[in-house]
Nucleic acid binder design. Structure first.
Length: 649
RNA sequence: GGGCCCGUAGCUCAGCCAGGACAGAGCGCUGGCCUCCUAAGCCAGUGGUCGGGGGUUCAAAUCCCCCCGGGCCCGCCA
């Protein structure tokens, strides 16, 4: 595949320097930067560090680069020296013919493929199947999906998976409520025109709160502790709120039934235990409840442009005896132990005996200095398994199912210790390769200003709600600009803008930083936003529509030397390497930032240099090529970010 | 108590891992630009002890140490 001239140049320069100073190519690549002032050139390298070290003088390096460029037949770059820096300038009038050839062949600019393609699993989102997705899931899904897109584009074989967490208390609570109502939840939701995940979410919240109220009342009666009164009042308020949000008859039935039952928590636990054993009718019931929620979750994911290759049910792992086998293996391991009377893995001893003697391994696990962690319990005294135990079995399964070299878990930063514990436990019982190649891709949580999010009380702002708000704002704007377009087009366009806005917001802040999500700010569709990129793309498309196909042969190369055009050309050509680096660094925000910078440059240029009315055909075609190039780059970039591209808006 | 993450302009953030040539965007605020290719745009102005203090270095927002502020995590929960 023909590489773009910029990538070719950078690769040539990188290998010339790397060979000369005997350093890793990757390291040199990271050191190559941009000169502070444009006149100096387009690439820069701080040669001083190698001259000081005696590896090579600046002049020797320049010679090496020059030789390399000649060898590679690169005739569109000029190498110069500025003190201890080496600067390289791209000669636009010569590079332009390579760009034209590239555009003739390709609709989209491709990333240079990795030299080390791997089989990768990306597990992400994995929202509990008891309520609609909220903003935290939006961040998870956007990060997971964007990473997958980037890694695929870089040439890796990526398998995306959603873990359906249906074993455990939460789903049992929702199922308990559904059982009381005696309904098929999916049919019922459809009949009533309620989104299935919202319906389950409501049942879950009502059931959970009613049970809580009951237990709390009992506690107050028994202990006479008045301080619990406030808590109770709070719960009753939540309940009142929920009462208005769902079907009256169902609320009454749940209220009546749970009020009558002696010990609802015990019944929920029994339901849970029977489900884990795979006994009917609980098996069918709980599955149905989870499936219902998933129908709704999947609809939201579809809107968000997020799809999965596989859906893994936690219950399948339990029923298929994978979890049982894991425990058997663990029992044979050197680090098996009994802890508080339960079967466990002795992580402290493993850390002490193995990791302290193996600094490499210790580094892989990134152990904190004063690291202390209790043994990991594998099974409760009543024989049921714990979440982390099942997760260990799941991790092994993920590696097997895709013959994966690496598994990425996109999970919130609050799970850091749990994920570390999981990896250590796996290593302790012999799954060292899996433990080392399991990567916790952690991100900070999304909060809303003010209230804390609480899904158990149905007090969440769902992703669907936010999307609808964004869409409504976009709709007004689209309608204003396109009064004659059919309603369907306006609606679709508004939807795509809403997706662009939310996905961009979720990706532009780097993962370790918390996002305080402000609805008003997300509704601002101006600069530094997804819609701004969509707009820039639409603008470029519009120009090309009016101009017609670019006549590459008519380009007068000299006209591309105009400083503004040259700058735009070079910046656009940085796309493939920028995206490749974003993929390698697992840092999609790098791509987002780059695209904004390019869009700024394009819009600024657009304002002062007309394309269609340019009288000189040689210059006009050069500009048209630039528009086409920028359009392709932003289009490719938006594809990678999973943001819909719009020809008009 | 211990550990992890974050702290850059009034606000939201990029740059830090891989130290380099004057610290960058957007929002906001002030003023200007549509008989002309999409004004969701553009131009000009405004704004910073890079949380604080030490250290390493020819060179520190970037690396190391200490301190301060905010968040999170330390269950037979998931």
């Amino acid at each position: 595949m023909a590489k773009d001239p910029y990538t070719r140049l950078v690769e040539a320069v990188t290998s010339a320097i790397a060979e000369k100073v005997g350093e890793d190519k990757q390291k040199i690549f990271y050191l190559i930067g941009k000169p502070p002032r444009e006149e100096l050139g387009d690439l820069s390298f701080p040669a001083v560090r190698y001259e000081k070290r005696g590896a090579a003088t600046v002049d020797e390096l320049i010679q090496a680069i020059t030789d390399k460029l000649e060898e590679e037949g690169i005739d569109y770059a000029e190498v110069s020296r500025a003190g201890a820096y080496i600067n390289i300038k791209i000669l636009a009038e010569r590079a332009i013919k390579h760009v034209a050839n590239m555009l003739k062949e390709y609709q989209r600019l491709e990333l240079p493929k990795t030299e080390n393609p791997q089989r990768l699993v990306v597990e992400h989102t994995s929202a509990n199947p008891i309520h609609p997705m909220h903003m935290g899931h939006a961040r998870n899904a956007t990060i997971g999906d964007t990473l997958s897109r980037l890694l695929r584009a870089r040439g890796h074989l990526v398998n995306t998976r959603f873990y359906v967490d249906d074993v455990g208390k939460q789903v049992a609570v929702a199922a308990y409520g559904v059982r009381i109502l005696g309904i098929d939840p999916l049919e019922e939701a459809e009949k009533r025109g309620i989104k299935p995940d919202e319906f389950i979410g409501w049942i879950y919240a009502v059931t959970h709160t009613l049970v809580d109220v009951k237990m709390l009342k009992k506690e107050i009666e028994e202990s006479g502790d008045k301080s619990l009164r406030d808590k109770l009042d709070d719960l009753l308020l939540v309940l009142k709120d929920l009462e208005e949000k769902g079907p009256r008859e169902y609320f009454d039935r749940l209220l009546e039934h749970i009020g009558r039952v002696e010990d609802p928590e015990k019944e929920i636990s029994e339901l849970m235990v029977r489900y884990e054993r795979g006994e009917e009718p609980e098996k069918g019931l709980v599955r149905r409840v989870a499936e219902t929620a998933l129908v709704g979750i999947q609809a939201t994911l579809d809107r968000m442009n997020v799809s999965f290759d596989a859906w893994d049910w936690e219950s399948d792992l339990v029923w298929s005896s994978r979890v049982g086998r894991l425990i058997e293996e663990a029992k044979k391991s050197k680090y098996f132990t009994w802890y508080k009377g339960a079967e466990a893995i002795d992580i402290p001893r493993f850390v002490k005996e193995v990791l302290s003697r193996d600094p490499d391994l210790r580094k892989y696990f990134k152990l904190p200095r004063g690291f202390e962690i209790p043994p990991l319990i594998l099974r409760r005294s009543d024989g049921t398994t714990l979440y982390t135990t099942r997760d260990m079995a799941y991790t092994i399964y993920k590696f097997e199912a895709w013959s994966a070299d690496k598994v990425y878990n996109v999970i919130g930063a609050d799970q850091r210790l749990a994920q570390l514990q999981l990896r250590l436990a796996l290593a302790a019982i012999g799954y060292v390769r899996e433990a080392v190649n399991l990567v916790h891709y952690d991100y900070e949580l999304v909060t809303l200003p003010g209230k804390k999010l609480s899904s158990r009380r149905g007090r969440i702002i769902t992703l669907d709600n936010i999307l609808e708000e964004l869409k409504a704002t976009a709709w007004i704007e689209v309608k204003k600009r396109n009064p004659d377009k059919p309603d369907k087009w306006i609606n679709d366009t508004a939807e795509k803008i809403a997706i662009g806005a939310i996905r961009f917001k979720m990706i532009q802040t780097s993962a370790p930083k918390p996002i305080v999500f402000s609805v008003e700010k997300a509704l601002d569709l101006s600069e530094n936003s997804g819609p701004y990129l969509q707009y820039t793309y639409a603008r470029a498309s519009s120009i090309l529509r009016k101009h017609g196909p670019v006549n590459y042969e008519a380009i007068r190369p000299g006209s591309c030397n105009d400083p503004d055009r040259r700058r735009l050309l070079i910046e656009a050509l940085r796309f493939p390497l920028t995206a490749a680096k974003a993929a390698d660094d697992l840092a999609p925000e790098q791509l987002a930032v780059y695209l904004l910078r390019l869009a700024d440059m394009f819009n600024s240029w657009y304002q002062k240099d007309t394309v269609i009315r340019e009288p000189d055909p040689g210059a006009r075609e050069c500009k048209a090529l630039l528009v086409e190039l920028v359009r392709n780059v932003i289009g490719s970039g938006l594809d990678l970010l999973g943001i819909p591209v719009l020809e008009r808006m």
